[in-house]
Design a protein around this nucleic acid. Structure first.
Length: 546
RNA sequence: GAGGGCGUAGCUCAGCCUGGUAGAGCAGCGGCCUUUUAAGCCGUAGGUCCAGGGUUCGAAUCCCUGCGCCCUCACCA
């Protein structure tokens, strides 16, 4: 006789094996064996009780369900008063509204012949009463077999208890979905940060603040889209799988396509495709979608993140600065409106109160540099000396560095921090040497026509007057490639490649343009007062559990 | 990458400093209860103290290593 050894893993506890010669686990004994947690076993048994009542514990289609909020608003004080006064008179016509609600059982109080539940849906909570007198027998038995965190459906009259709680006084209950997992603690909720991210499906219903943040996120993104449309930008979708990963300086994720046997990259930016569309004659385009960068994780970086990029033909950096400022103010106004506020658009972010209503501040790179370091950025010797002092690790290389790179290092050390975090601020006029893909300022070729928006110390959105001279572009690409130290950047060379097609596109002729990129996750962090990007991404990347 | 913190029942947390048989609340189970709402009362059960190693007569506790998460800094851009 052949003996198969089958490994199988109960949801908890050790894996064990059994062979075909062993008796099969019986179906009505717990099919997951002794590894099954008692709490789950108990819930399975309650589920079987529901089946024995002739009901489907996982629910069936139900039409005409009212939200908890809608059911509450149906409450009719006059009808309720009338019922309380005359409900026992023969022939009395009950005018209290009838409703069906569905939700997850958050609280359960079994008084014997009267069972109270508080259920929750995305609109809020409502209390349900299931009394032995007023429910049909099956429904009452179902109520008895209901566990915390089950999904239940109740139909009945909307009334108010003598303690003033709006309640659906049920005459019928139906199962809406069995929960075999026990719920988090009912007062403290789900606290563990890791579990909240890994099991967002629990976090979302157990912690209403979580749901509120993601509803706001959805509203913000929708509002941003409508704003762009109102400005006559066309929404487009460009490749996320690219044969070259261009448009930004970041390490891409690499994958392989079997059918063509080629290497593919997840995009690090949509930029080069959106510009091709300008060449194609689309004057104003935008895309809101995911970019992927194969770099570290921290409070402001998730490997996949959502960016808005927009390009405006015949515009320049000022065009898109105005766009961003109006767009952010509009989104902030939306959030404030959702919070019931009015007047000046001020939203909290941690300890800061960020004012979005005034014109955003501006500061030039050069002025911040000088304020930070006490000498002008054109003073290369002093810059080198300062960098050696503050960054001893870099000291040996400093003399060989491009003077503008030295300036840039110093600026990032101290310059950015001079910007008031509570005032949205554009830093303008970056050195051209540190902005290779940007056009130079018409009146000063040493400076780039670029502005970066900073809010709360975070870089939110860069703005550029785009490069559209194919020869300049090609030279810049070549310089970028040449700059790679072959040994140190061996890996980088596998994905940094000249984008010949993009140069070819520019040769067809691209109108002058302003372009911007706005980090949507960071914007949502600001507007919803969340300190980490993981609290505004539904399913942030986590290391696998096993 | 460096430093710090955390990991104990399904959940929320004590206990660790100062080593001596594992604790509470909620949830669960049995019982009572038809206006409760963190329901209440009586009873009861529940543990790989993240994993591995070490010290010790004895380790949740002290030491080392590893894993996971969080924080700060650095790197990257």
């Amino acid at each position: 006789m052949t003996t198969w050894s089958v490994e199988y893993r109960p949801c908890r506890g050790r894996a064990r094996s059994f062979s075909m010669t062993d008796p099969l686990p019986s179906a009505d004994a717990t099919p997951y064996g002794e590894g099954l947690h008692k709490l789950e076993a108990q819930r399975r048994s309650n589920r079987d009780t529901v089946r024995a009542l002739g009901l489907e514990p996982y629910g069936v289609r139900v039409d005409g369900i009212a939200s908890c909020a809608a059911a509450r608003s149906l409450f009719d004080d006059a009808a309720n008063t009338e019922f309380n006064a005359r409900g026992k008179e023969p022939g009395f016509a009950d005018r209290r509204p009838v409703v069906t609600v569905a939700g997850r059982v958050m609280l359960l109080r079994d008084n014997g012949k009267l069972i109270w539940m508080t259920i929750r849906d995305e609109t809020g909570d409502i209390q349900i009463a299931a009394s032995q007198r007023d429910c049909d027998a099956t429904s009452f038995a179902l109520a008895k077999a209901t566990d915390l965190s089950d999904i239940t459906i109740a139909s009945g009259r909307v009334m108010k208890t003598k303690t003033g709680e709006i309640t659906v006084w049920a005459n019928s209950l139906r199962p809406g979905g069995k929960a075999l997992s026990p719920p988090p603690e009912k007062h403290a909720g789900l606290q563990d940060v890791e579990t909240r991210y890994r099991q967002r499906y629990v976090d979302l219903w157990a912690n209403p603040e979580t749901l509120a943040v993601f509803r706001l996120r959805s509203g913000i993104v929708s509002r941003v889209r409508r704003f762009m449309e109102s400005r006559a930008y066309l929404e487009v979708e460009t490749p996320m799988l690219q044969t070259l990963a261009g448009g930004a300086a970041a390490r891409p994720f690499v994958t392989h396509m079997n059918a063509l046997d080629i290497k593919l990259f997840l995009r690090i930016a949509p930029e080069l495709y959106l510009k091709r569309l300008l060449v194609g004659g689309l004057p104003k385009v935008f895309e809101i979608n995911r970019n992927f960068r194969n770099e570290g994780l921290d409070k402001q970086h998730n490997p996949e993140f959502t960016m808005l990029e927009a390009y405006h033909a015949f515009g320049n950096v000022e065009t898109v600065m105005e766009l961003t400022e109006s767009l952010i103010r509009d989104a902030a106004e939306f959030v404030l409106g959702a919070a019931g506020g009015a007047g000046e658009i001020v939203l909290p972010f941690g300890d800061l109160s960020i004012n979005y209503s005034r014109p955003f501040a501006r500061a030039t790179f050069a002025s911040l540099f000088e304020r930070a370091w006490g000498f002008p950025m054109t003073d290369a010797p002093r810059a080198r000396e300062s960098l050696k002092r503050v960054h001893p690790k870099l000291a040996p290389q400093v003399d060989a560095m491009d003077p503008w790179l030295v300036v840039n290092e110093l600026f990032e050390q101290k310059g950015e921090s001079l910007v008031d975090p509570a005032t949205p601020t554009f830093i303008t006029d970056y050195p051209a040497a540190v902005s290779p893909l940007t056009r130079a300022k018409p009146d000063n070729p040493a400076l780039a026509d670029r502005a970066d928006l900073f809010i709360a110390g975070m870089e939110i959105a860069p703005h550029y007057t785009e490069l559209n001279d194919p020869e300049v572009q090609e030279t810049r690409f070549r310089e970028q490639l040449k700059g790679l130290d072959a040994e140190k950047h061996a890996e980088e060379q596998t994905y940094r490649t000249m984008d010949h097609d993009f140069v070819r596109a520019l040769k067809v002729g691209m109108p002058p343009a302003g372009g911007m990129g706005l980090g949507i996750d960071r914007l949502v962090m600001l507007l919803t007062n969340q300190r980490t990007i993981r609290d505004v991404v539904l399913f942030p990347l986590m290391r696998p559990e096993e």
